[in-house]
Simulated assay, not measured.
Amino acid sequence: MNRRTFIESMGILGAASLLPISCLHMQPTTNYKLGYQLFSIRDEMTKDPIGTLKLLKKLGYQDFEIYGFDAEKGMYYGYTAADFKMILDDLGLTVSSGHYGFSGFLNAPEDILIRFVDQCIQGADTLNSAYITWPWIAPEQRTLDNFKIMSKKLNIIGEQVKAAGLGFAYHNHGYEFDDHNGQNGYDIILSETDAALVKLQMDMYWVMHSSKYTPKELIQKQPGRYVMWHIKDMDTKTRDYTELGNGSIDYTTLLPDPIASGLEYYYIEQGGNFAQNSIQSATDSATYFKEHLQKYL
C-alpha cells in the first residue's frame, strides 16, 4: 500500500466511524443462524417435539435454545440427550445454548451444585451446544444478598463449564434492575463475576422494560461480553410480550453492533401473550425478522 492509498483508506475508515451502527452493519459480516428459544413454543414441544421442530425449520429457524432439561434422566423433551441430538442431526438443526435450572441450587452445598453442573455439561456436550445458561431465580430469591451469593456461584459454575470446553452465560430479566436503595442486582453481577468465566445473554425486551439503559449502552460498559441476545417485542399498551413488529420496540434502530457485543448467537422469543397461538407467533415473528431485521445480522 503506497502513502496515497493508505491516507485514502484511513479517510474512509474515519468517515465510517462517524456513521450510525445500523449503517455499519447493514451488510452482515457474520452469517448468524436464525435462532428461536423453544420456551416460546413450549405447548407444542410438549405435545409433539419432532413435529414442532419440523415446523420451525420450515419457518426458517435453524438454531435453538432449549429449556426443561431433566438432569437426573439426562433427557430433553422426553428423549435422551443422544436421541435428541440424532433428531436434530436428521433435521439439520442445532442447539447452541440451553437454559438450565440453577435457581434451586442457589443455596445448595457446593458439592451438590457441582454434581448438577456436571449433569448439565454432559447433556450440553452431547447436543454439541456452545453455552450453558443460568436463566432465572425465583421471586423470593431476589435480594441483594442473594445476588452476591449468586455471583459467587456463577463464577464457580463458569470455571467448571469452561474447564469442560463449553461457555457459560447469565440471562437477565427485569428484576435485576430493581432499585434497592441505590443498588441493583445487575450491577452486582457485572462487578462480582469474572468476565472470562461468565458471559452475558442480553434479553433486550427486559432491558427496555425495566432498565434505565439501552442495549447499546450496556454493551459499551461491557464490550465483547454479550455473546447472546434474546429479541422480543413489547405490547404498546400492556407492556407484555408480543410478536415482533407488533409492539413498541423499534429494533431497526435499537439493535447494537454485533461485533462490539461479542455476539455469537441470537434467539427470537415470545414467552406468552400470543395474538393467536404459539405457532402463529413463531410464524409472524420469523416473517417480520427476515423482512426487517436479518439484514443487520
Rank of each mutant, 00 (worst) to 15 (best):
I157S: 03
W136E: 13
K162I: 11
E140S: 15
I157P: 00
A124W: 05
N128E: 10
N146E: 11
A124L: 12
E159R: 13
Q160L: 12
L144F: 09
I156P: 01
D125G: 09
W136S: 14
I156Y: 00
G123N: 12
I149P: 01
L113K: 10
V161T: 05
A138D: 09
K152G: 05
A130P: 06
N128C: 11
Q160S: 08
A130E: 14
S129A: 15
S151H: 09
V161R: 02
F147L: 10
N155P: 09
K152T: 09
P139S: 06
L127F: 04
D145V: 14
T133G: 00
F116D: 08
R142Y: 00
W134I: 09
S151G: 10
D145P: 12
I114Y: 03
Q122C: 13
D118S: 15
T133W: 01
L113H: 07
L113T: 14
W134T: 04
S129I: 12
Y131D: 11
C120D: 04
M150R: 04
A130W: 04
T143P: 10
I156G: 00
I121K: 04
I132M: 02
D125P: 05
T126W: 05
I121Q: 01
N128Y: 06
C120F: 03
D118Y: 09
T126M: 13
E159Y: 06
M150Y: 02
Q122M: 15
N128M: 11
A124K: 10
C120M: 07
Q141L: 07
S129F: 07
D125Q: 15
T143G: 08
R142Q: 06
S129L: 10
L154N: 00
K148S: 08
I137Q: 02
K148L: 03
M150I: 04
Q141E: 08
A130C: 10
I137V: 13
K148H: 09
R142M: 06
L154D: 02
D125I: 13
I114E: 05
R142L: 02
N146L: 12
R115P: 02
F116T: 07
I137Y: 00
I137L: 03
T126G: 08
Q160F: 05
D125F: 08
I121C: 03
R115A: 12
L144N: 11
T133S: 05
T133N: 04
V161H: 00
I137S: 01
N155T: 11
E140L: 13
V117P: 00
I137G: 00
Q119G: 06
I149D: 04
R115I: 13
N155A: 07
D145G: 15
Q122H: 14
K153L: 08
C120N: 05
F147W: 13
P135H: 06
K153V: 13
V161D: 02
E159H: 09
E159G: 13
L144E: 11
K153I: 13
G123K: 13
P139T: 07
W134S: 09
I137P: 00
E140V: 15
I157G: 02
S151N: 08
K152Y: 04
Q141P: 02
G158Y: 03
I137F: 01
K162A: 11
I149N: 05
L127T: 06
I132T: 02
N146T: 14
Q141M: 10
T133D: 01
P135Q: 10
L113I: 14
V117H: 01
K162C: 07
T143A: 10
F116P: 04
D145M: 12
